[in-house]
């Protein structure tokens, strides 16, 4: 493999990894702070993509559609937390798993009822619809670079929020000691609602920005869910930094194994996870 090709593939891997990070960050945040394993996280990714499709077609502007969709996702997150998740905090973790599986069913059915089952597409917004020629054969679409940049910015934003603000301090405190935070006079319920809704919104944003690059189809959320779990576990549950590193590892390993080890490529990310867990049973950056 010559050096240009290597760099291209590295770019492909990083781009895939960054997108995985965006989806996985919400999952790891919710688990880290609230201890909730949200299996419906993939459904939120799907919801984001379908909302984007719907609002792009009604408003005609991708930007407007993205903002509206993200707000709806945030509200949806608040609704789910306030009506359902809140009843399960004092219950077994497995009950939460069951509840979120119920949610997967509901969202799949609603998607089919509202938008039908045909594969749908969203066109890339015109102001990002260019490409940068890299060689005489290959060019790189501006939109995909934009998405990568966005993922990095959101990552940095999350990192700063968690480590540099009062809210972040509370989130970190909530992770380690729920009662302690309550003693400080902070309304922990409100904090939980905020965190859960943010998690949902992050998945939905990933769905929204993915919509122009992928096909919007039923079941799209379930495919990314497993990859996200792999990412989160490699990085260490609850660690944003871990999710970032894990996502890049998964993206790059998956990309290169596709080309260099095609017989093993379907298993490669699982092999990666198994190896990481054997060396570090709690992931790379566990608390």
């Amino acid at each position: 493999m010559d050096i240009t090709l290597f760099l291209f593939q590295l770019m492909n891997g990083v781009q895939y990894g960054l997108l995985l990070f965006l989806i996985a960050s919400g999952l790891t945040l919710v688990f880290g702070v609230m201890g909730i394993l949200n299996l419906a996280h993939g459904s939120m990714y799907m919801v984001g993509a379908y909302l984007a499709y719907y609002f792009v077609n009604t408003t005609g502007s991708f930007g407007v559609a993205a903002v509206i969709s993200a707000i709806i996702a945030l509200l949806l997150g608040i609704l789910i937390e306030r009506t359902l998740i809140i009843r399960l905090y004092r219950r077994n973790h497995l009950d939460q798993v069951l509840l979120t599986i119920g949610l997967i069913f509901v969202f799949n059915a609603l998607q089919s009822l509202l938008w039908g089952n045909d594969p749908l597409g969203v066109t890339v917004p015109t102001w990002l619809d260019g490409a940068i020629p890299l060689t005489d054969m290959i060019e790189y679409p501006v939109y995909r670079l934009f998405v990568s940049l966005l993922c990095i910015l959101i990552g940095i934003g999350m990192y700063l929020t968690i480590n540099r603000t009062r809210l972040g301090m509370l989130i970190r405190a909530g992770e380690s000691n729920r009662d302690m935070v309550e003693c400080l006079g902070v309304n922990i319920n409100r904090l939980y609602t905020l965190v859960f809704a943010t998690g949902v919104a992050l998945a939905a944003i990933a769905g929204i920005v993915s919509a122009p690059m992928v096909s919007v189809v039923p079941g799209m959320g379930e495919h990314v869910l497993i990859a996200c779990f792999v990412v989160v576990v490699i990085g260490g549950m609850g660690s944003i930094k871990g999710a970032f590193v894990g996502a890049l590892m998964v993206g790059i390993v998956d990309t290169f194994s596709s080309i260099m080890l095609p017989q093993l490529s379907s298993m490669m990310i699982y092999i990666l996870m198994a190896v990481v867990l054997l060396v570090k049973p709690k992931g790379l950056f566990a608390h």
Binding site: Q9, Q15, T255, F256, S258, P262
Partner: peptide
């Protein structure tokens, strides 16, 4: 041959271009 139902095609297409 891409593992089913994977849709991360970019690495393969880059490879085709090469």
């Amino acid at each position: 041959l891409v593992p089913f139902p994977k849709t991360e095609f970019q690495p393969y297409i880059t490879d085709i271009a090469a």
